[in-house]
């Protein structure tokens, strides 16, 4: 039996802890990833600024892929089911995750959403994170690919002002390129900024209004040819 040493009343003692506060989320993310892999599901975490076109992009991806794969979409927002309702019109399973006050989704919320979903009937899960270029980057969810959406209407500084989230990205979508000229913001400039921070990220210019670039997004996410289970 271990020797027990007790402290005297009022005695001061130091405890080494090394207790990692962020690790709890990393562990939950690894569990989600394992669960998804077991069911042969590919998951994509879509992050991005407010109003950059995350939901529009998801609607187009769903339209393009729903004949090919069984898809579910998890929509994260502080409140309302506006986004979920928009996506549900396309006839795929939709789960609205309301974070209340939190500025990001976390792996625990995704675990809860996965728990209420029939994973045997899915090939692809698209997760729409809360609109925010700061916090979501820090909390991995267990997705295979992380995509960040920004748009030219947010001006030319979005990437270099928020380098951390772009360091996390596998794919970056620069949306509303049809408005590029009117905004005086060049796609090439934003693409260069992304690649300066993270040369591995694939950058695609899109217009969700016209449908430009959606095939390239599918290709960049490597979901053009998912193996059906």
């Amino acid at each position: 039996m271990a020797k027990l040493v007790k402290h005297d009343e009022g005695e001061v003692f130091d405890i080494e802890l090394e207790e990692n506060i962020l690790k709890a989320n990393e562990d939950a993310a690894a569990k989600n990833r394992e669960l998804l892999r077991k069911h042969g599901i590919k998951a994509i975490d879509i992050m991005g600024s407010i109003g950059s076109g995350k939901t529009s992009l998801i609607e187009l991806l769903v339209q393009k892929l729903k004949g090919k794969y069984r898809i579910a979409v998890f929509n994260g927002d502080l409140t309302t089911t506006i986004d979920a309702d928009r996506v549900a019109r396309h006839g795929v399973e939709v789960v609205q995750i309301n974070t209340g006050k939190e500025c990001h989704l976390d792996a625990n919320l995704i675990a809860k959403a996965l728990d209420g979903t029939n994973l045997d009937k899915l090939d692809l899960i698209i997760i729409e994170n809360v609109g925010n270029l700061i916090c979501p980057g820090e909390f991995r969810l267990g997705a295979d690919e992380r995509l960040v959406v920004i748009s030219v209407t947010e001006g030319p500084y979005m990437v270099l002002k928020h380098p951390f989230i772009f360091m996390e990205a596998d794919v970056v979508v620069i949306n509303k390129i049809d408005l590029s000229q009117a905004m005086g913001v060049e796609f090439e400039k934003l693409r260069n900024d992304v690649n300066k921070v993270n040369a591995k990220a694939k950058v695609v210019g899109t217009s969700c209004r016209t449908g430009t670039g959606i095939s390239e997004v599918v290709e960049a996410l490597q979901i053009d040819n998912l193996r059906r289970q």
Binding site: H7, D14, I15, E16, L17, E18, I21, K23, K200
Partner: peptide
């Protein structure tokens, strides 16, 4: 080339001082 981050993203409690 492209590197991986291995430090600087943590938040952990290293130690605490307690009074009995």
């Amino acid at each position: 080339g492209t590197v991986e981050m291995v430090g600087g993203r943590n938040c952990f409690i290293k130690s605490v001082k307690l009074r009995a």
